[in-house]
Design a protein around this nucleic acid. Structure first.
Lengths: 344, 344
DNA sequence: TTGTACGCGTTATCAC
DNA sequence: GTGATAACGCGTACAA
């Protein structure tokens, strides 16, 4: 019951350890009969090979890891599942690594890569400017998913699957403008953000400019303090402040659907209505945005396709050893009930 | 750059491997100077100990795993994070294992336990009647979280952290009855479910009986077909069918908040209102239920406390080697705006 | 305080 | 087709 090893199995079957190993790993040169017998006793004795020993010895392990800071993020949750399914379908092992907010995800990846002899890594929702020095230490292929990270061209063996955050952000703000809105508030990331938050804010500014609308810092609500960014709480809190500040605006653009939902709640709680009094737009295209009442107008990221392509791209990189792959998906504006057309 | 081992470090520093090992593992008997020198070169050469080799050698690894089928489930997402933080705080490694829907989670746990020399396991959202035979093979302590699983008393080294699903379900249905509702539909799990779905249905039936309301199978919507259960889609679809069937009811009880939200959407889409035309109640107490409009009346599980207690309980079991621990938390009825009092 | 040598459980490389 | 045996990288008696 305690710890049965390959030696025990070999002894019980009256064969050598290498034969047992062959049976386990589906090696060709083995008598089908003895193989069956071995597999039977393995099952009978409930033997499980010690993975540490395997990894120690093996050159390669056929496992890929997905590292992320947000397993809880509903946007990622679905993508993780899709990627996992695809990886398992290729008979690769899949390990999911959640790293703490304050931890460096690339360092974590390096560690796991060594420990588990990874074949490849998926970063879900990583930084836009990953540390090149660290990346260099990561000597397995990797794919960044959801953000168009700037990786030095001196490196190779990487891929990127993302959307054009600036352009898509432009798209939805442009849409709001076309609906007649000119006072559009934005709920965005930290002021010092250089990743998705900055890109989406850039798109917002460009759209305003193209419509001849002056940029008003009073309408820009940055994330403050600590805590997580893409949450309903954050949307609620900042919107409440915005409403109390008596700054006027007819539309509110949140850089994620979760933030948008928090914003809606704050608007309702203040006695106003969405979209009659204030229009709200989100970003991501979560299921949730559709089920909210009113449904949230948003930018829909093709999550499934992106997750699938991420996994596929990684396998391509593994096969071809190196490469610099980039796939920018188009996202689509999904009209909900949360935006009202106003005729000035 | 390729693969630097402990030997390399030893050679470079002009010391023996054991000295390096001592430096790494903070052993006492070592000259502080040499220790510092070793740590410096370790950093300089970017050496990371091979975890597989460590595990192979070590008797124990100080890692605990959390296995679940639903990392995407918002109820679990938060609890996972809490548990992970607590485990890491104890200087234990934390591995998160998502198992596929059709896979047996206990078999998966057994495999990982052997592979990674686990100290303990957390099952998040497991079955209510786990296979005793399999459980017996799991020779590390484990804690089931969220469901009061029936584990044979012949076993030990286990814990349970849960709520009383039947009683809490009773509580909310009783509440609906007290608000004057007598035609209460329920959206529940598969007809053959023996876990949470059954318990919550049991509570529903008992509450109805206590209020002298006959049980009407027409009001019981079981999950059908394949796919995931605790989803908005499921709530939407079945509610739509229910509404089209023209069965009359004034309240709808969904056994999860996510299902409840799907139900609300279907009600809105049919031109009816919540709660004016139909009252809706959920279960779990997700943040989301609060942010929904109208906010959903629900049973709030003390997620953080449960997650924390789960982790604590596991450490207690690890320390004391065996035991049969059970902690049933009280949940609270959280009134939202989704239930209307009707005066018959 | 430090170094040597062995063994952890497995796979790969040989001989047979 | 099969069985010894040498690695894999590390921790740890034990010797020095």
């Amino acid at each position: 019951m305690e710890k049965v090893t390959i030696k025990d199995i070999a002894r019980i079957c009256g064969v050598g350890v290498s034969t047992v190993s062959r049976a386990i790993n589906n090696h060709p040169d083995i008598n089908p009969e003895t193989k069956q017998q071995i597999l039977d006793t393995i099952r009978a004795y409930n033997y499980v090979p010690n993975n540490s020993a395997q990894n120690l010895k093996r050159t390669e392990t056929n496992t890929i890891a997905l590292v992320t800071k947000g397993v809880g993020n509903p946007l990622f949750a679905e993508m993780i599942e899709t990627a996992q399914r695809h990886v398992l379908g290729k008979d690769y092992a899949f390990v999911l690594q959640q790293v703490e907010e304050e931890e460096n995800e690339i360092e974590a990846a390096i560690r796991i890569a060594k420990e588990r002899r990874l074949k490849g890594i998926i970063f879900m929702g990583g930084a836009s400017q990953p540390d090149a020095g660290l990346l260099r230490l990561l000597n397995v292929p990797y794919v960044f998913c959801t953000v168009d990270s700037r990786i030095p061209e001196s490196l190779s063996g990487w891929g990127i699957v993302a959307i054009d955050n600036e352009a898509e952000s432009y798209k939805i703000v442009d849409y709001l403008c076309r609906q007649g809105h000119r006072r559009i508030a934005i709920l965005t990331a930290f002021a010092h953000d250089t990743s998705i938050g900055k890109l989406r804010l850039d798109g917002y500014r460009r759209a305003l400019a193209d419509h001849g609308i002056p940029y008003d810092p009073e309408l820009v609500m940055h994330m403050r303090g600590s805590g997580s960014l893409y949450t309903m709480q954050y949307g609620y809190q900042r919107t409440k402040e915005l409403l109390e500040s008596e700054t006027e605006f007819t539309a509110l653009y949140a850089i994620s659907d979760t933030i948008a939902i928090g914003a809606c709640k704050a608007i309702f709680d203040s006695g106003r209505r969405v979209p009659e009094d204030i229009s709200v737009a989100g970003f991501d295209g979560l299921d949730l945005a559709n089920y909210y009442h009113p449904s949230i107008t948003t930018i829909e990221q093709p999550m499934n396709e992106m997750a699938l392509e991420t996994s596929r791209m990684l396998f391509r990189l593994i096969r071809e050893k190196d490469g610099r792959l980039r796939h920018i998906f188009p996202a689509t504006l999904r009209e909900g009930q949360s935006v009202k057309r106003i005729c000035p």
